[in-house]
């Protein structure tokens, strides 16, 4: 642990630091300003209410929700196992979980094809035995999204679990609570803020997922064309469709901001 001398106030930061800090902030925000300036506002309402946009948004919300549910169901137990493992094993598990984070999503898409594609390690057998083909289906979208989003949830929840510690759980256990009771009544409530933050991050990542989806799930309207793929498709078309790419981008940003605001209000309600 770092023993702490912290600067007394923000004013203690050297002035010169402000220059790169501002440049950093500009790097994050100016592209959005550019997007807003490029939007043809007379066409925005038409573009975001078009049947294509509605279908892509609905598909995005459905798949991102499903992927987030998968991540919570699989990720919380995984995080619990990591948090309660011996340090050496926890370190290894943590590194493995982080792998999809450092892997470019396109590589993730190729990896998913290699596993679940028709000639894949498991996909081939699934096709032969049950006639199940995963690529080009909505399930493939959910799998791709869960693959890229799961690390966000696991890392957030695992961090929360380690911070919460095990003392309360130990007390409950000595008082005779069964492991399931401890997990549901003590562990989960103690990590609720971390779990919520992780869930929102996970949802946001799933909502924005593009690379793995494009390769593994393909791009078909109503089946696998989520918002990012609809934006890419519109952007690649000539002429008018570029305006709708910008309008769809704005719509996706608004949805993401709405998610963040929901989280904030929920958190401040709990805090207040």
């Amino acid at each position: 642990m770092i023993g702490g001398t912290r600067p007394a106030s923000v004013g203690a930061i050297p002035r010169a630091v402000l220059v790169p800090a501002l440049a950093g902030l500009s790097l994050l925000l100016l592209p959005v300003v550019g997007l807003l300036s490029r939007a043809d506002w007379s066409r925005v309402p038409g573009a975001i209410t078009s049947p294509e946009a509605a279908s892509a948004l609905a598909l995005s919300l459905q798949t991102a929700t499903a992927a987030t549910a998968v991540c919570v169901i699989l990720g919380v137990p995984l995080a619990a196992v990591i948090a309660r493992s011996r340090p050496s094993i926890a370190g290894l598990l943590r590194a493995l979980v982080t792998l999809p984070l450092v892997m470019p999503p396109l590589v993730g898409g190729i990896a998913l094809l290699a596993l679940l594609g028709r000639n894949g390690l498991i996909g081939g057998a699934l096709d032969l035995a049950f006639g199940i083909r995963i690529p080009f289906t909505t399930s493939a979208v959910v799998i791709a999204q869960a693959f890229v989003a799961l690390p966000f949830l696991v890392i957030a929840v695992e961090g929360a679990l380690r911070t919460a510690g095990t003392s309360l759980e130990a007390v409950a256990a000595t008082l005779g609570a069964r492991p399931w009771t401890v997990f549901l009544r003590i562990t989960l409530p103690s990590i609720a803020p971390g779990l919520l933050a992780g869930t929102v991050l996970c949802f946001a990542r799933a909502l924005g997922e593009f690379g793995a989806t494009a390769l593994f799930a393909g791009n078909a309207a109503g089946v696998t064309r989520t918002m990012p793929l609809a934006i890419y498709t519109a952007f690649n078309g000539a002429g008018v469709s570029q305006d709708s790419a910008i309008a769809l981008s704005l719509l996706l940003i608004v949805v993401a901001i709405a998610m963040l605001l929901l989280l904030r209000s929920w958190r401040s309600e709990r805090a207040g």
Binding site: G117, F136, G218, A220, A221, T233
Partner: peptide
Amino acid sequence: VAASEEQNVKAVVAKIQAGE
């Protein structure tokens, strides 16, 4: 009904070549 609508012809080639 296309299983996927690719953004360039080489992506179509790749999907067939990969056996998908």
